[in-house]
Amino acid sequence: MTSKLMRDEPLLSVEGLTKHFTTSASVLGRKGTTTVRAVEDVSFEVRAGETLGLVGESGCGKSTTARLIVRLLEATAGRVVFDGIDISSLSRRAFRPLRRDIQMIFQDPYGSLNPRHTVGQIVGAPFAIQGTRGDKKGNVGELMARVGLNPEHYNRYPHEFSGGQRQRIGVARALALRPRLVVCDEPVSALDVSIQAQIINLLSELQADFELTYLFISHDLSVVRHVSDRVAVMYLGHIVELADAADLYGDPHHPYTEALLSAVPGQAHERERIVLRGDVPSPTDPPAGCPFHPRCPRAQALAGADGAPERCQTERPPLVGDGVRNVACWYPLVGESGQAGRATTASR
């Protein structure tokens, strides 16, 4: 997929996006509320025509971020600017015309399709909702053919299709109104490997044909690498690293990125496997300072008598960089070229 190197305006720009889920326990008021800090001060841009990958483990906030962008959820703080318009401050009504420009593809192709509607109705629904006139059936048939479905199956129901075909239906529905930005939330995670490739290839072709911009969310590092021009890595609600895909995968600067990459099984060349100890902390009670410091092999390697370096424990590192490579770490893995240098920090 092509990344345009011209200094083009970002199509989507997310600034300080924050989402806290608050559950209040009591009617009589006593007892505190618990706050899940799902997304914390996340900022990034998606340039027109590119694919930005958003990768991280479960609970890191990547899906919440997606839902905030398409306004399935309302943000606690921050702005989402689409094509120069701050969509996070628009009323629902004012946002509606923009909905057609921003579409979403979901993980579970079955759960997101109404079982009582035919494929024709599902794919055709966006036309009806947005009041688009014209030859609906013809448009739907054309779209179905484009995503690799047989247009003669117009009157079939979702359960009559296989998992891969259902995801094609989901793709067709998302593309019906010719959106400009498509947020793909784990679009291939529920599919068998041989089918995954079909959908990934389809998404690439469609991106070229329809000049789409993708925000591609997945836990699968290999898939993200394959589809993305640039990649953002999330941990516990924060973006910890954001860079061009090749740079980030070839030479990660954040210790978490490095550990994550090393954990992917089946790699041909010998990358020292860094097995992180312990679990991801709860987002209701995130660690002070850098969210990764309690598990960070780098912090452990630099640790003195009082544990990790003080800065890691007390101050949250901001995402800084030259706009191309950005990392949120007080002691990034820079300058230690090659795997060997970094492997010394690994705890095995």
Partner: peptide, 8 residues
């Protein structure tokens, strides 16, 4: 499981 937990 997540990839880092898978490794464990």
């Amino acid at each position: 499981l997540d990839v880092t937990v898978q490794a464990q």
